[in-house]
Amino acid sequence: MPVDHRRIRGPDESFSPRLFLPSGSAKCAAAEDRRSGDGARGNMDVRAIFARCGLVSQAKGSAYIEAGNTKVICSVYGPRETERRDETEMKRGKLLADVRLAPFSCRKRGQWIQGTEEKDLSQFLLESLRPGVLLQKYPRSQIEVCVMVLENDGAFLAHAVTCASLALADAGIEMYDVVMGCAARRSGDAVLLDPTFAEEHDEHPSPSGKESRLTLALMPAMNQVSGLQAEGEMDAESLVEAARACMEGCYKLYPVVQQTLLKSVRKKAPPPES
């Protein structure tokens, strides 16, 4: 039988031992004890982020973001000549986005091969970034955005959006604005902004039984929402409330991202000494 030696071959079906834990013994972060579990963070607080630009030397632009234990790295290649010549749309550049989750990034081991879920994430990233990039300035070319999620401790897609736009800006791609991402989880009446993995996958049913997750991408300078994705059960009112909370979260992180970009520009081209 031909065996692929590059990949670890486990049994056809294997399960994480966590599944066999007696139910209830798993540590659950309920909405009430957020303050005790996660420093002094309130429900509407986002995690402090650490962001740096220009760490991948081979890429035109790159960025790294850390929020709590969520770690995302992104590199941007291009603009370069587009590969496919049969495209009718040659007046504008083409943006390509690729999101990958490292196999060890989640609790459950993932696959190296990109699955349907990752393709869906890539599409969300692409649609969130595209309104922010001046693609008409790059005719006949393509810009590739590669995101790698190193560790998933919740809200990784939102941070991937922020990280990707940082990398695009670092690559010198012309943009209208930095696209910021923010996620929220709603369980019952409580909105948890920028949830951790434990909060995202909290299995304790809330009294009303309604749970939902929301990811939003915003361009703060223009107040335009470029990406929105929500799933679960929610009322229209609570959905609007969660979306507003996410937008606030984006505004909170905006100065941090601006500082990071300023720092990287200063490093690349130090101001003339006078």
């Binding site: 990406g227 929500a230 929610m234 009322d235």
Partner: peptide, 9 residues
């Protein structure tokens, strides 16, 4: 009237 999914395309 419960919303189960919202997405921008």
């Amino acid at each position: 009237g419960t919303v189960t999914c919202v997405r921008k395309f």
